[in-house]
Design a protein around this nucleic acid. Structure first.
Lengths: 120, 120
DNA sequence: TCCATCTGGTATCGAATGGAAACCAGATGG
DNA sequence: CCATCTGGTTTCCATTCGATACCAGATGGA
């Protein structure tokens, strides 16, 4: 048994990376981590996500066992999405990334300005 | 001054997230973290990346101040990519994600199998 | 009665992005 | 003289993305 190597295309770790290295996945996971939310609430919370991509991404997250989808037979129907323990554990792993972004946005903007000024 | 809100489309944190929430960015960053590498070495190391996407992604990483690009006038020319301190700090933040993937690949595969078995 | 509104989606379309492959210069090795 | 190495760019096609329209089914107001 050798260690999985994410640089190899068929490594299972890479499959995971393909899924979670996605803008909407990260945003939705952290949004649902705040509190369980309904479809349209998520749509309003995560500005810019289209209904199509939202439903696709939620479906993938559900399939991967990261969120649960609960349907309540109200009128109109209520669908609530919540984190599973697995999803919560991933969200905790992702949180430092958001923190890093906040701390280093200025450094990145500065680097970009420098780069753009150099090469016209 | 209020805290940046990545759920809002124009929040600068979201700009960072757009950049780093990308499969190739993560893989390249961790590859370069092992040791500085040349273009074709990276291409061989990160299986499946095309030359086009590799050069595009490296260009973005350079612009964001995450990697440096050094050209040596050998024959043929040698181009070496290395992490900046900023890139190294991001890579350290990303490392737990790779760890999480390795630890939870089985749980995810199991959830997928369950999901696929339920809904034909 | 008729129309608008709420829910959680799907269908459709053009635009942007991704990957595969070909091509490039310039020097070297056989 | 042709192949090979370097680090890319260009071209083409397929997949994906985002915006928009549309759907059912029940409710509320005029």
């Amino acid at each position: 048994m050798h260690a999985p190597d994410p640089y190899l295309a068929l490594c299972p770790t890479r499959v995971v990376l393909d899924r979670i290295a996605d803008k909407w996945t990260v945003l939705l996971l952290t949004a649902v981590a705040e509190r369980p939310m309904r479809f349209n609430a998520l749509r309003r919370r995560v500005e810019g996500v289209s209904q199509k991509v939202l439903s696709q991404t939620l479906k993938s997250l559900e399939r991967d066992g990261l969120v649960t989808r609960s349907v309540f037979p109200t009128v109109p129907v209520t669908v609530e999405y919540a984190l599973t323990p697995l999803g919560a554990s991933l969200e905790r792993t992702l949180a430092p990334l958001a923190q890093w972004s906040r701390e280093n946005i200025d450094a990145i903007a500065e680097a970009q300005a420098l780069y753009d000024a150099r090469g016209p």
